[in-house]
Nucleic acid binder design. Sequence first.
RNA 1: GCUGGAAUAGCUCAGUUGGUAGAGCAACUGCUUCGUAAGCAGUAGGUCGUAGGUUCGAUUCCUAUUUCCAGCACCA
Length: 576
Amino acid sequence: MKNIKEDIKLNVLNHSCAHLLAHAVKNLYPNALFWVGPVIEEGFYYDIDLGDIVITEEDLITIEKEMKRIVKDNKLIKRLELSKKEALAIFKDDPYKIELINGIEENSITAYQQDNFVDLCRGPHVESTKLLKNFKLLKTSGAYYKGDAKNKMLQRIYGVCFETEEELVSHLAWIEEAKKRDHRKIGRELELFMISDFGPGFPFWLPKGMTIYKALEDFWYQEHTKEGYQFIKTPIMLNRELWETSGHWFNYKENMYTSTIDEKEFAIKPMNCPGGMLVYKNNLHSYKDLPIRTGELGLVHRHEASGALSGLFRVRAFTQDDAHIFMTVDQIESEIIRLISFIDRMYKVFNLTYRIELSTRPLDKYIGEIAVWDKAEETLKNAIVHSGHEYKLNPGDGAFYGPKLDFKVTDSLGRLWQCGTIQLDMQMPERFDLTYVDSDGTKKRPVMIHRVIYGSLERFIGVLIEHYAGAFPTWLAPVQVNIIPVSNEHHIDYANEIKDLLDQNNIRVEVDARDEKLGYRMRESQTQKIPYTIIIGDAEKDAKSISYRKYSENDTTTVSIEQFIKLIQEVIKEKQ
RNA sequence: GCUGGAAUAGCUCAGUUGGUAGAGCAACUGCUUCGUAAGCAGUAGGUCGUAGGUUCGAUUCCUAUUUCCAGCACCA
């Protein structure tokens, strides 16, 4: 998808279209007051105060009509240069604009006028409303004034505008295509997972989804073993005191599930790190052993707000592919460079594109010394630069214990999902009094890194479902080969013989011997997106061969069973 | 959590002035034994999310509640 905000031409077009929207709303609802109407990656929106009036889907159509009318009128868009005083006079009845004007430091203020409608704006804009022909209002919703949940809600209307009709049509078609890839829909159709009303946000893995889940786990263990990780499993529930020590209790107790055991309060882990700390402390460590890389596929629970839940993308119970790396200060940069290249290698297997974001110290919710934070942030920056990547800065978005690098992958809707993250932590080792024995025999404080690559298995599978539109590569596919005997009477024995051979070679295979026509079973094999479908009939039986058809292809290839097994094994080995 | 919308068979959906529900697919049974995306016929399947209320009567109207959807806020 095109990033409208970053395309200069489209940015101006969409910004002008936001004004057009406001103009139309003002004509239809004279009492409407306007807050801000910025351009975003997907188009534009405008936050509007309509008092008690609620904009519905049907109202959007009316507003669109009014916008089209203004476009047809071909209103010139004029730039006004105003002093603060003049601006305040023009917008004297609009408390939102007065607030905006008072927030501007310079004395000169610009506004744009089309017909009788004037709106505050830095600009630039297109010269006439007639250039705003190809737009569409997409959705409406509430949005907090100034983005703060303590404030009242305004109504937000989203839309998008393009230069040509073709671009708009193809964009709308693309939105439709994205809906078809929705992992919740595909998850139901392919029987991968379910979520019950008895457990909102707590996904159930069905047999086929569990096969994918397990394939990802196996792959993860293999690759981490190569990278020198050791593995642990820590308890799901630990005493509240531990969470007080880690700082999670103070920062996140509202989102933690708790229970009382023998009159002591326990919390279900929302993070794996405190458990990992206890494992580290179980032994003395020498500087010679560092860095120590400890991996844990750890099941965590977080009480996410009900409105935040969304399929597998946001759940209340999920497995983090966590790891904690303990090292000396000198080892930080090289370890992070190594991690970035590890993550890069892992994502390439899935053909996932990603971008790196650096999040720095939060304004208030943080622990530790500012100087330590600054140094940590510097180290992360250097590591990215040395890895040859670019990054986006997110000031104030760091974890409460340290700055972090987020790896955001793009899903089919163009949404960015944080999957991987590397978090530097100079506080937790202090709080847990972690030490190692240095070469001079004294005890020193190690530094630690928290990191995940998938992020959570649940969310990652959600992203993969949409990424592949359910047509998983063979190594992940729940069923890799489907065998269809043309006639049950004559070919079932040979079909079963082949199934046994594939079974023996650890290939996930099924035989569809239902009393249905070949075309019917072939259709289902395709709608279930099974990578390889084998057809067994007289020709194959006589020649002791098999014919197979790859998913989404129309032609059939005939080979010996040995050749076929070799082919599948090769495909799986190459992670295709 | 907030704003708005939705909830009817396993799935997708129809059902307007309130008179206790229907289709296609799937399932099951029979017939058909079939060569690359839907063979034919029949059967069964719903307390119309849940709980109250209004009414002679509620899937339909009202209230509450649960879950889902679109955003917002949140996301260690």
